[in-house]
Structures are given as structure tokens and as C-alpha cells.
Simulated scan of single mutants.
Amino acid sequence: MTRLILIPLLCAFISMDAQERIIINDDQQFIAFLENSLENGVANSEITQMFYQRTWDYWRKHMIDYNQNPEKYSKVLSLYYQNQQKYKRNDSIKIDRFENQIESFRRFDNRNTLAKNPVLFIGSSSIVFWETAKSFPDLPIINRGFGGASLQEIIHYYDDIVKRHSPSILVVYCDIDIERGKSPNVAFSAFKELVNKVRKDFPLTQIFLLSMKPTLVDDFIQKDVSINKVATNRMLSKYCDDERNLHYIDITNMMIKSDGRVRSDIFLTDGMHLNQLGYGLWDPIIRSKIMSLTK
């Protein structure tokens, strides 16, 4: 019986492969694909992987138009979210999945004389891709962003990426928890846990918590990612208002145009990570805050 149920959905996938894996670029065709995926098949790991490969092809091609005209995609997005409930991915992580990257940091730190009292950048891929030494050549910069690190992974490797460097200023960016479906309350609690660890070891360290950035693909990652980023940012902002040596840095306003749409020219082709122009918007904000604290 299971094999019979799988046939319509598998045929849909096979027909796409027969067309040389052409990107789904017709809205009606994509709607038909989503309706067929929802009604047929069993959501095993293989079918789930194929589903996300096909849908990402579509969203990658349409993300700029969606950002400009989201109302055109209401039906498509509704069907997509329904399918996401059916084709759920395993979002669990192994806490040591980035051990190789951390070991590279350990070896580098053991071989080199590093800056004392540095401005230390930590976090997920937005920190990894940020060429911080070039952005702030006159400052004692250390960058210890790794992978697509979640806050719990950052906390897990705290001794390696934070404690051993005794930062004078710590810059933190992480949106992975929200993008993996965690609630704003869970993400906020993890930020507080990290801040408490830093304060215990370095009570004079100035801590910058950067706002979670909007991207062109937030709505395609999971439902409510955009909403939950905004909610978490509000919580972080309020938290920093009442705390000594803790600063909320809003790096999102200049990423949004006057009509409320996210700028599309500041991202790499994946619609998620910033290009040089995007980081060029962040640099003066961070520099200004650092200078205000080091005069």
C-alpha cells in the first residue's frame, strides 16, 4: 500500500529529473507541485530532501520579486507552509558538530601572539563572513565566528572562543536559534546565559548584542521567522536598556528601504548572507559605538 501511495509523488520528482532538473519557474506549475506533494506520498527522509531541493530552487529564483510583491505569493506561501508541516526536517544538532573549526582556532591561538584586550567578534555565519580585520584595521580585532553556530554552541565553546581572549569589547551576532524554529523566549534566554557567563569572568567588558538582521529568505526558512526575529530584537533592546556595560546595536534599520522592503542589493546570491555593500552598512555603526566607549 505504501508503495502505491508513493508512486504519484515519486513520478512528479522523476519527471523533473527527466527535464534536467529545470528550476521550477512557473507559478502555476509550482502550485501544482505543492498541491501534489501535500496530497500524495509518505514524508520519508529521501522525499523530504527532494522536496526542499525543489522548493529552494523556486524561492531562490523568486525571492527578490517576493520581497517587492509579497501579496502575489499568498497562495504559494500557504501551501508551502502546509507542506513544511508534512515534510519536517530534523533540526536537532550535535553540540560538537563544529569541533574541527574550533580545533583550528585552538591551534592558531597556541601558535600566535594575539591582541591583548581585543575587540572580539563571535557568532554565526554573519560573523564568519565579516572581514572584521579589514573593516577595523586600526583596532585589536579577533574574529571567532564559526559555522552557523547556535547560541548553545557558542556557550558550549565559550572557553575556547571567549574566555581565553579576555575581550575588552565583545560583539555578538546570532540568529540561528530563531531560524531553526526556537521561540523568541528561548533565544532571549540563551543570550542572557551567554551574557551572564561573560559578566562573571569579565565584569568590565563591554558587550554589544547586535540585532537579528532581516533577509530575503526569512519567510522561506520557516513560518514566523521574520516575526520572531523582530520580537527577539525587542526583548534584547529592552534588556540592554536596564543593564550596565550591555549595549543593543540596531544594524537593521539601514537594511530596510523607506517602503519597508528589505534592500536586495546588500546580499549574496543566497539572499541570506551579506555582501561587501551590506557589511559596509554595519561597519560605521560598530565603529562609532566602539569609539564612544574608548575615548
Rank of each mutant, 00 (worst) to 15 (best):
R164Q: 14
R164D: 09
H165I: 13
H165E: 15
P167V: 04
P167E: 09
P167I: 03
I169K: 00
I169E: 02
I169Q: 02
I169T: 12
V171S: 10
V171P: 01
V171C: 09
V172A: 03
Y173L: 09
C174W: 03
C174F: 05
D175V: 07
I176M: 10
I176E: 10
I178T: 01
I178Q: 00
I178D: 00
I178P: 00
E179K: 03
E179I: 00
E179W: 03
E179G: 02
R180W: 08
G181K: 01
K182N: 07
K182G: 01
S183E: 12
S183D: 12
S183Q: 11
S183A: 11
P184N: 14
P184D: 08
N185W: 13
N185V: 10
V186W: 14
A187R: 00
F188H: 07
F188G: 00
S189A: 12
S189F: 04
S189H: 06
F191D: 04
K192E: 15
K192F: 14
E193Q: 15
E193H: 14
E193N: 15
L194G: 13
L194I: 13
L194S: 12
L194A: 10
V195W: 08
V195F: 14
V195R: 05
V195N: 04
N196R: 06
N196E: 05
K197F: 06
K197M: 07
K197E: 04
K197I: 04
F202G: 06
F202A: 09
F202T: 12
F202M: 10
F202P: 05
F202C: 05
P203D: 13
P203S: 14
L204S: 07
L204K: 11
L204W: 05
L204H: 08
T205K: 10
T205G: 05
T205H: 07
T205Q: 07
Q206N: 13
Q206R: 14
I207L: 09
I207Y: 08
I207G: 04
L209Y: 11
L209E: 05
L210M: 13
L210E: 06
S211K: 10
S211V: 02
S211I: 07
M212F: 04
M212Q: 10
K213N: 14
T215P: 06
T215G: 07
T215E: 11
L216I: 13
L216P: 00
L216F: 08
L216C: 12
V217F: 02
D218F: 01
D218L: 02
D218R: 00
D219V: 06
D219P: 14
D219Y: 15
F220C: 05
I221A: 12
Q222G: 02
Q222E: 09
K223A: 03
K223S: 01
K223P: 01
D224C: 07
